[in-house]
């Protein structure tokens, strides 16, 4: 049982990292959203497995929230927003996809190295999980940084959050995981609303910043 539990959770967490890479690789918005849905599904599977392994029923709730909210509601909403606002469908990369992937690989390596230093304090399962979770977090951040489009920034943030949920679920017996998941869902919802309400994509992040400098510097 122990061996199986480890293998499955390891595989699922690895899948999460893989989907993160796939997210980085996408250069069209709709494909990005679909891929994000996939990641959310993997996450909910992973969390559900943890619930099963740890025999913690509240993690099922978390898994369910992840499935419903992240895999279905948010991607759909974003689909509609993109359509409504007529946002450019291409994702603008600041650096090329290849470089991004390389950087991503380096980040995963970094996460592994950092985690390897942890001696025997935490059990192996948690440690591996944690390494993957950290990778997902870092990859999510990387995505926020290298993508110019606001929607992809949102997706990056959500993927980062998936890493957090993974880590929290992997921590044996950690209380408040559900609350964290809910809190983050609220946060994500607010981000989405922000994008929608204030058309932030147009206003703040898709314009050439330097052209505005003279205007912005006035009075700061």
């Amino acid at each position: 049982m122990k061996g199986l539990a480890f293998d499955v959770s390891h595989m699922l967490a690895g899948g999460l990292v893989l989907t993160s890479f796939l997210l980085l690789y996408q250069n069209r918005l709709y494909a990005l959203l679909n891929m994000y849905s996939l990641q959310a599904v993997v996450l909910s599977l992973s969390v559900a497995w943890q619930a099963f392994v740890q025999d913690a029923s509240h993690l099922y709730v978390t898994a369910f929230i992840a499935l419903l909210f992240k895999a279905v509601v948010i991607p759909l909403t974003l689909h509609r927003i993109i359509a409504r606002l007529g946002i450019q469908r291409d994702v603008e990369n600041v650096v090329g996809a290849g470089t991004t992937m390389l950087a991503g690989l380096a980040l995963v390596a970094l996460a592994e190295v950092v985690m390897l230093r942890i001696a025997g304090g935490a059990d192996v399962l948690a440690r591996e999980d944690l390494a993957f979770a950290l990778s997902v977090v870092l990859l999510g951040l990387l995505m926020m940084v290298v993508r110019r489009n606001a929607v992809s920034m949102v997706v990056g943030f959500m993927s980062l959050e998936n890493g957090l949920i993974l880590a929290a679920a992997g921590a044996k017996g950690m209380p408040l995981v559900v609350e964290f998941a809910v809190a983050f869902s609220v946060l994500v919802a607010l981000v989405v609303i922000g994008v929608f309400l204030f058309r932030i994509s147009e206003r703040f992040d898709s314009i050439d910043a330097e052209a505005l400098d003279s205007f912005r510097e006035r009075g700061r």
């Binding site: 870092l138 990387l142 926020m144 993508r147 920034m153 400098d213 510097e217």
Partner: peptide
């Protein structure tokens, strides 16, 4: 003072990676 949000995030990201590298 006049970077975009993405660039600020990049700075935060850089700080995080730098610290992790130090730690590693």
């Amino acid at each position: 003072q006049f970077l975009t949000i993405r660039q600020y995030l990049g700075v935060v990201f850089g700080a995080l990676v730098a610290l992790l590298v130090v730690l590693a």
